[in-house]
Write a protein that binds this DNA or RNA. Structure first.
Length: 509
RNA sequence: GGCGGCGUAGCUCAGCGGUAGAGCAGGGGAAUCAUAAUCCCUUGGUCGGAGGUUCAAAUCCUUCCGCCGCUACCA
């Protein structure tokens, strides 16, 4: 079977603020999918990065008293640090200030222009100098003296500035046809309906250049303009594949298998981006998946509350893999969720320490003390062994199904069904009693448990890579650790190292 | 205003036409290999309210109440 390509992206994160829980969430989810596909033996390309142009960055740099490039270098490094701390296995980290990206963005611009989808017009509207933003007529309020004001109370003036436009209006029907022909393109389904309705309600041409600031990629041939940030940013997914050279080593990864995005940017990925690609005669990504937002202790993360959570202190306190587990287990992917210490500690103690961790420890330490510290020899299997092993045998397929739908919580729930069954099995088989009455049977029970633990560990590597690697070490599993090894039985007689607890219980008031 | 979603056990949610389910939390018992972890049993819901369709409705329809999302240049 030929290797299957899997190209997955996170959004490139905007560098006008520090990385927080939301960014870590997207990256972790993407990482789990990337790792899962590697376990499947697929050829994976996993991209993340930073989006560094635009007026807000220019303003943030000015506020920090440094040049934009210096500013973005600093913030981008912080995002890269977050990725390192979260053990994100990205194959590349793209920055929109890199020369390769400038080249790609300008190339696609020229392509769109050549194909007749870009024209020079003028952008006009009510502009507030103080807010540096345009407002719609219906957003404005009339002040007692008859002048108009922005929702922020700032005065506005009618401003006309030259701008290049993208003929988005030309793509309405093609987009609708595409959605109809590819019902899986936008997920979850509720988002598909929203996007569909948006497009159906009519598309206006999109202003894709600015002259009011300069921190951006110059429009080819008219350097008074810089490219609109989204026009610039979305192209990153192509840049990383080598665009405009689509014959290079990475060209085969395009089109992307999946763009993972937060729900606030679904439209850019599900409407503008496909339209740009159609206009440039390029194939469209297979899927755009929009996930939800986290509240923190019941409250929305916001500047005014100052409650943005940085995951790095959490990782320092609770450990990396438990935090990764929590993010993907706690909330059905696609829904909003709440992050709280109580919930995090509850998950860690119930699922990890008392569940998987305890199961592994009671099995492995028993083997270390009473079964010669090797994978015990498997004797004749009894009914309960077969039932449990059959359940384990079904797990990869169940998880595969859930992962295909990005139903991470279901994948984990299925895995924990097996873990609970194994806990029941060890209690009922009671190897501590068999030790005296029937050592052979004891070995078979312990072997069965090791086999089940191996299945669990292999599958969970995508979610908790470090600790599941350790568990596989404890089980004497060799260097090859992909899903394919589950087709061959666990080797008996392998010497096992002394096990140590995987998930410490959290003592917390 | 328009379009759409949600409201099921204390909590988080699954079920989406055939006599209410899971995990966690609570209660009782067992066991003692293990991170005082585990196992077994168990309490608990007129499935937001009211109408209707049907032999049969959390499950379909109507309506009301309460939340929430989208409604173009905001990362």
């Amino acid at each position: 079977m030929p290797k299957q390509y899997f190209y997955i992206t996170t959004p490139i994160y905007y560098v006008n603020g520090a990385p927080h829980l939301g960014h870590a969430y997207t990256s972790t989810a993407a990482d789990v999918l990337a790792r899962w596909n590697r376990l499947e033996g697929h050829d994976v390309f996993f991209l993340t990065g930073t989006d560094e142009h635009g007026q807000k960055v220019e303003a943030a740099a000015r506020l920090a008293g440094v040049e934009p490039q210096v500013f973005t270098d600093r913030v981008s490094a912080d995002f890269q640090d977050m990725a390192r701390v979260m053990n994100i296995s990205n194959d590349d980290f793209i920055r929109t200030t890199e020369p390769r990206h400038k080249e790609a963005a300008q190339a696609i611009w020229l392509k769109l222009q050549e194909n007749g989808f870009i024209y020079l017009g003028k952008y006009e509207g009510w502009y507030s100098v103080r807010d540096e933003a345009f407002y719609d007529e219906d957003e404005l309020t009339i002040k007692p003296d008859g002048t108009k004001a922005a929702p922020t109370g700032a005065p506005v003036e009618w401003v006309i500035e030259p701008s290049y436009f993208f003929k988005l209006s030309a793509f309405q029907d093609r987009l609708l046809e595409f959605y109809a022909a590819n019902p899986g393109f936008i997920a979850p389904p509720s988002k598909r309906n929203e996007v569909h309705n948006f497009v159906k309600s009519g598309l206006r041409d999109l202003s894709v250049s600015r002259t009011s600031f300069s921190w951006g990629i110059p429009v080819p041939g008219d350097e008074a303009h810089v490219m609109y940030v989204w026009m610039d940013a979305l192209v990153n997914y192509l840049t990383a594949c080598g665009y405009p050279d689509m014959t290079g080593p990475r060209a085969g990864y395009w089109p992307a298998s999946l763009h993972l995005v937060g729900k606030e940017i679904i439209r850019f990925h599900a409407v503008y981006w496909p339209a740009f690609l159609m206009a440039a005669d390029l194939p469209l990504p297979e899927r755009v998946f929009s996930h939800g937002w986290w509240t923190v202790e019941g409250e929305k993360m916001s500047k005014s509350l100052g409650n943005f959570i940085d995951v790095r202190p959490l990782v320092a306190e609770f450990g990396l893999d438990p935090v990764r587990y929590f993010l993907l287990r706690e909330v059905p992917f696609g829904n909003d969720g709440d992050f709280s210490r109580k919930a995090l500690i509850g998950r860690i103690n119930s699922d990890l320490a008392n569940g998987l961790g305890n199961l592994a420890q009671r099995t492995l330490s028993f083997i270390a003390k009473n079964a010669g510290a090797v994978v015990p020899p498997k004797g004749e299997l009894c009914e309960p062994d077969c039932v449990l092993l059959a359940l384990a045998g079904e797990l990869p397929e169940k998880v595969r199904g859930a992962m295909t739908r990005l139903a991470f919580h279901e994948a984990l729930d299925e895995t924990w069904r097996l873990i609970r069954a194994a806990d029941g099995y060890i209690d009922h088989q009671a190897p501590w009693s068999l030790r005296k009455t029937d050592p052979e049977r004891m070995n078979t029970v312990l072997y069965t448990l090791c086999a089940v633990l191996r299945t669990v560990a292999v599958v969970l590597q995508a979610f908790m890579p470090e600790l599941m690697n350790r568990l596989l070490d404890y089980l004497g599993v060799g260097a090859e650790r992909g899903l394919a090894i589950l087709d061959t039985p666990l080797l008996e007689g392998m010497a096992l190292p002394a096990p140590a607890g995987l998930f410490p219980r959290i003592q917390d008031a």
